[in-house]
Computed example of a mutant assay.
Amino acid sequence: MAGGKPVPIVTAMEKAFKPQPEQIKQAISPRTKAIILCFPNNPTGSLLDKQELEAIADIIIAHDLLVITDEIYAELTYEEDIFCSIASLKGMRERTILVSGFSKGFAMTGWRLGFICAPDYLTQQILKISQFTTISAPSITQYGAVEALKNGQKYIVEMRNSYRKRRNFVVKHLHEMRLDCHFPEGAFYVFPSIRQTGLTSEEFAEKLLIQHEVAVVPGNAFGECGEGHIRCSYATSMKRP
């Protein structure tokens, strides 16, 4: 809407699908305004730890940029104390637009309730667009979110433990099928490579659906560098066939 041009950075499974500091530096131009991060990541399950975020934060500060960080899967990380928000790092609070919601960590998919945390001078501009493009969230949804924040933490722990078991199950069986994949650290997706089959991601996904009635998302749906992969979700119950 504001005439911005997205500049993608290609990530690879060999680097755990994480953008490298040198890649970010090379992508910055005099017109760069902000860097967008989405970790824990959909579709790869990748996660940036504190040390990796600090390296990116140094670049952001050095070039006087903003960061837009999508942390919708923040509650769904599988190693203790590994998640870190870039907003918590020194000098980043006033440079961060944090986007999140209740769909994932609080299992409120369909309620369509999200939020943004940002410095006041930015939220005032965001409101100018929001108030003319969205309708206010229903009151019952907002009350549900308040209850989730107050009393939902123990359920997050239960859900996280359940997802961890499903992740381990899915990755184990993918390896048994000789499909290489990154070990997800967050979210509820795994992004295995299917290059060894000789099929494109769309061909593989279609054959899997028609021949075995298993639905996956072809990797090219997430950009050119997703080709050769498929996204598998492990959000369903282990009790279901």
Rank of each mutant, 00 (worst) to 15 (best):
G4W: 13
T109A: 14
T134F: 12
I129E: 12
K128L: 15
V190K: 04
S233Q: 02
M1N: 13
A87S: 10
R231L: 10
G144T: 06
M238A: 09
R167G: 00
F132K: 14
R240H: 12
Y121I: 14
M108Q: 07
E213G: 09
P241W: 12
I82F: 02
E158W: 15
E147I: 13
A57D: 00
V214Y: 13
P21W: 02
F188E: 03
I82K: 06
S88P: 03
R160Q: 09
I97S: 02
D64T: 08
I36R: 05
P30L: 12
G110E: 01
Q124W: 10
E80V: 12
I60W: 03
Y78I: 00
M108F: 07
K33W: 05
I194S: 02
E158S: 15
G105K: 06
E203I: 06
Q125F: 14
Q153L: 14
A87E: 09
S29Q: 09
Q26F: 05
F115M: 02
S29D: 04
F83A: 04
V216E: 03
C38W: 13
K104E: 05
S233N: 06
S85C: 05
E94Y: 11
F204E: 00
L89C: 01
P192S: 03
R112K: 11
E203D: 10
L47C: 05
P30I: 13
S103N: 08
A87P: 03
I156L: 02
A12R: 15
F222N: 00
I59Q: 04
E206A: 11
K15A: 09
